[in-house]
Every structure is written in C-alpha cells, then in structure tokens.
Design a protein around this nucleic acid. Sequence first.
DNA 1: CTGGAAAATGTAAGCGCTTGCAAAACTACT
DNA 2: AGTAGTTTTGCAAGCGCTTACATTTTCCAG
Lengths: 341, 341
Amino acid sequence: MPDSGPPPTLDDVARIAKVSTATVSRCVNDPRLVSRPTREKVQAAINALGYTPNFAARSMAAKRTLTIGAIIPTMENAIFARGVQAFQEELHARGYTLLISSSAYRADVEEEQIRTLVARGADGLLLIGHDRDAAIYDYLERQRVPVLAAWSFDLAARIPSIGFDNRRAMQSLAEQVIVAGHRRLAMISASSAQNDRARMRIYGVRDAMAAHGLDPETLELIEVSYDVQEGADAFETLMQRQPRPTIVLCGNDVLAVGALRGAEKLGLRVPQDVSVTGFDDIELAQVVRPGLTTVHVPHREMGRLAAQELVEMIEEKRTGRSQELTATIVNRASVLDQVKG
Amino acid sequence: MPDSGPPPTLDDVARIAKVSTATVSRCVNDPRLVSRPTREKVQAAINALGYTPNFAARSMAAKRTLTIGAIIPTMENAIFARGVQAFQEELHARGYTLLISSSAYRADVEEEQIRTLVARGADGLLLIGHDRDAAIYDYLERQRVPVLAAWSFDLAARIPSIGFDNRRAMQSLAEQVIVAGHRRLAMISASSAQNDRARMRIYGVRDAMAAHGLDPETLELIEVSYDVQEGADAFETLMQRQPRPTIVLCGNDVLAVGALRGAEKLGLRVPQDVSVTGFDDIELAQVVRPGLTTVHVPHREMGRLAAQELVEMIEEKRTGRSQELTATIVNRASVLDQVKG
DNA sequence: CTGGAAAATGTAAGCGCTTGCAAAACTACT
DNA sequence: AGTAGTTTTGCAAGCGCTTACATTTTCCAG
C-alpha cells in the first residue's frame, strides 16, 4: 500500500482529467451540465485517484451542509428509536445526513445542543415536542434554521409539527376505561415540567373524567422520571391510597411495565386486581405479560413524514406545514372490563 | 426582531473589538494567548453579536472536525443504545460530537456510511465488530482515520477493539447449562454471515459441547434476522425436532424473548418444559417473565472506554490499545436445573 | 535608561470547493 | 459561409477560519 499522502482534491482530479476545477465540480454535483466525453474523463480521474469531496470545503462554498440535526430526549429506550430510524432512512434517501444527539430530558442540555448543531451548519432541525424557552425560538428564527417538531401536534406553537394530539389520545383511552366501569383512576406520568407530551396526557385523563362526571381532582397522580424501576415504585405508592385505584394509567409503556413489576411484587394480579395501561406501543408493550393496553403511535410514519416535510422546508425555503397523525388504542390484556366482567 | 442578516463572522467580531481576526481566533481557541483586557473586549464583542464560529470554515482551516462517527447495525433495539449513549456522553465531555448512522446489518450500507463519515472529516470512527472487507480496512488506513471496534475483542484483527470475548462468554453459559443437565441443545442465532459476534457465540456453544463430551454437530441451529417474531417462529420450528431440545440458547435477548413468546403460543412452560437463555442483558431481559438467564455485557463501560481510547488515538496520534472486558452470566428464571431439579 | 527576551498582536496565505460571469465550441438555420 | 442561439467549459472570486511568521509592546535585569 503506497502512501498516497494527503487525500486527493478537486484540483488533483482536474489536473489529471485536464479540465478546470469548475468542470469537475459540476461533474460531481450535476453531471447533466457536462458533456458525455468530458464526464467520462473526469469520472476516470476520480476513480483513479479515489477522490472524495471534502465536506467542510463543500459546505463552506455552497452554504449548505446536507445535514439535519435531531435532538431527542433519550436514546436509551425504544420510544424515539423507531421514529428516528425512519426519519434517518428517509433523509438518507434524499441525500441528507442525520446528526443525532440526546438531551437526557434536560432543557439546558437541549439548548446547548441546538446551538452546537446550528454552528455545525445543520440545514434543518428536528425537535421533540414544543415546550422550550421563547429565547430558543427567537434564536432559531434569527438564524433562519428550518425547525420542525415531532411527537406533538400543536397548531398554536411557534414551529410546525408532525405529530398527534397527546391530549385527545389519552382522553380516548381514559374514556374507554371509565366506560368499562373504572371509577378510581390513578396515573403515573413522566415529569410534566418542560414536557408538553406528558402534560397533555395528564390533561387528557382529566378531560375524560370531567366528561363522565368524575371529579378530575380525584385523579391520583405521581410524576416520576423515565424508568421501569421508578414506575414500579410509584405503583406501589399508589396502591397504598385509600380507596385503592382500580386502574393505573401510565404516561408511557416503560412506566407501565414498571407498574406491572410493582404489581407482581405486591402480589396483585393484572388485570384481575388492578388494571394498567401504557402509551406509545413500543415493542415492549406486546412482549410483556399481560400484554399492555396502550396507545399506538405511528412512529415510523411520523419519522418519514417529518423527514419529507423538513427537507421540503429547506429546499423550497417555505414555512412548514403541520400534520396531525392519529394515535389509536390497542387493547391487550392489562385492562379489566368491570362492566362486562 | 430586527433582521440581523447573515450570521456574524470572525471579521465582524474583530472589527467591533478593534483587533485582528487572529486575536479573536486565539481568544476563542486558546484564551491564554491573549491578554486579559483584550480578551474581555473580544468577549464583549462576541456576546454583543451573538457570534458562533462557523464549523465548516473552522474544520477546513484547522484540518480537524472534533467529530467522531459511529456506525451501528441498528438503532431500533436497546442492544447498542446504552453503549452508544455512554460513548456519546464521554465524547461530549471531551469536546467531540458524535455522528451516528445505522447500517441495518448490511455490509454494503456500512461501507457507504464509512465513506460518508470519512468524507465529512470524522476525526475517528467507531465500528461494531470486525467482520468486513479487507478493502475497507485498506481504505481506512490510506485515509489515516483512527478506527476502533467495539462489542468484540480480537487481538488478531486489523483494528484495535474494546469489547469482550463473545465466544468464551457464550461457552461459559453453555457449559453451565450442560452441567445443569441439559443434553439436547438448540440455538437461535442472528445471521452469522458478516457478523463475528453471532458466529463466535455459535462457536462458543459448540466449544462447550465438545468440552463436555457432546457432539457439537447435534446442536440444532437456526439463524434468523433480528426480531422478536423471527425468534418466536424459529422456536416453534425447533420444538418440532425429535428428540425435542430441552434448552434453546439464543444469540441475543431479543430472540430469547421471541422464544418465550413462541413457547407461550405452544403452551409450553418456561423453564419447566423448556429452558431459554439470552445474551446482552438489555432491560428487556429482566422485565420479561420468566426473567431471562443471559450474559451481561458491560455496555456503558464499553462505550465510555471506547470513547476514551478513540480520543487518545486521535490526539496522541498513536495506534489504539485493545481492551478486553468481561461479560458475566446473570441467572434468572428461564433455565431449569435438571440436576438439582 | 537601555537592551533583549518574552508576551501580545497583526499580516496574510491558504484550506478545497462552488458558482456567477465570460469565453469558447457547437448547432441549426438562412 | 454567416448568424444567432445553445451548450460546454474556464476563470477567478470568494466562503470564514487558523496559523506560521513578522512585528510591536511589555517587562525587567543591569
């Protein structure tokens, strides 16, 4: 393997192919602008040299990076993985690269990462949900970076979103369990500060209660961070309450699995002694026993649509169009119908 | 919000602060080189303008990007998530940004992504396992990009690795179940082509069989792709075999959960009727019932060490040092001890 | 004071690419 | 052959930053 020294540049290719750098550049970026014979000469030189365009130089000259940034709260569980994967696939198909970072659900970390991604010249950004400082939106506007939110849908927000109505989805689920005869509801939610998804899901439960003549104030609510064990602990606490809730609605599937483990530890049978629901319908929900009744979120579709929309915002330089997806209830075995028995 | 036009540049800052661009640059990159009063003047200008360095320009001039690329087979399940998260955290602490892409377990996709990351000027690369074309290693060598492998440990490989001995770990587990009285072993593995981790785990089982007087050829093996459902289907197939295996060793936890589901479908109790083991010890393994006996992989430590090593390789310009971590067996409820009963 | 070393700052040459503009080379008609 | 497009190619000016080297300022011992 001879030492080829520094990697070949556009100039090298131009020299070998005996054309100008401009021609080589066109050849690489838009071959239609170059005549057939020239194109072949250039291709040959490129292959001979093993030339790959230098990304930094390119984005500096072209003022775009073909890079899109996404900041997700966490990579450690499957909640965002599937959607992000689909997002990535679609971006890749359109020639963009995805830069992912995770904020560990912390607003300050998220802000820092937004700035980093912008400094790196991300052509666009995908954010999760809408809850963040106005200052960040100001910054983004000033920098003119197209931004899209996912996992939430809110026409009133400052940025367009591709997502679903967390509040309404949770309301439907809660109404279903109320109709099934449950009256003493409890809820385990992820921390709702700085998290509109979590907050809306709580509101959804209260909406359902109010709509069915239950006092929303009687909802036994515990907020915890995002973790199976936390879910289990919260569940045990809830089971102390008098009168004991007949159902525990969880803000997501991970907490719900925690609840299942909590029940197991207390020797309570699900759903005979107490019912449990989740949210998201990650793989875990159908793998666990009893299978979780939960809200199915169209993760892959959301990711794909978000990629399409964001790329269009960038390439057509237009403001984004929000799109609402529907989340549907999936009934498995973790809820007891007290009416039918 | 006044339109601030294009983002401020180093020149703008220099002009406002009434110093040269060189001074501003030093101020940003190594403030010790600048006198206190000047530094403060420059800082003030930076703040006033809201200046952020342009990444492309910087990496072009400095010939480094402070970016590290990682290509993982999949983001969709937790196998790599935890390790990568730790990797990212450690990199972040050292001032590097992580670029992640996933190859969907496809060698051609991986190769393309390696080239993309190199073209983007990644200062270093993290790859999973060692199985890939020699041509890729040649390319990487020629480009002089530091590369490190994780999730495997192999001193004979062309690149250094931070990982564990998949073969030996699986062998230990297999020996344990043989000692527990199992004689008819079956295995569900991820596809072993282009995947040294999967292949070594198979070898490990055969090693154990040979070491205990069992004919390695009698191992009932099915290779499937990586998915709960595939695991379930494979399990059902294996249960047709005569004589029926008493234990199904799975190449990873996801397949093992599939096996659990398969058993459920067939009305077989685990572990009374058939035992099941996993590999990786992802969260799923302890959440599922029965809890999976599996091999615990120190994901977070692996990610952290890999980040440290890779950064050192880059910054000290030295070749990497491999490090072997130990994977340990975690006994849960999915294996029946036929000897003790 | 002064000379000389050390510290601080400035000058300017790139880094590798894209792209507006201009020139050259074709084409298809009179 | 001449003309007016149309297509293809080349020229060269940046893009925003770092850094080797040169210059100026500061500091201190003599």
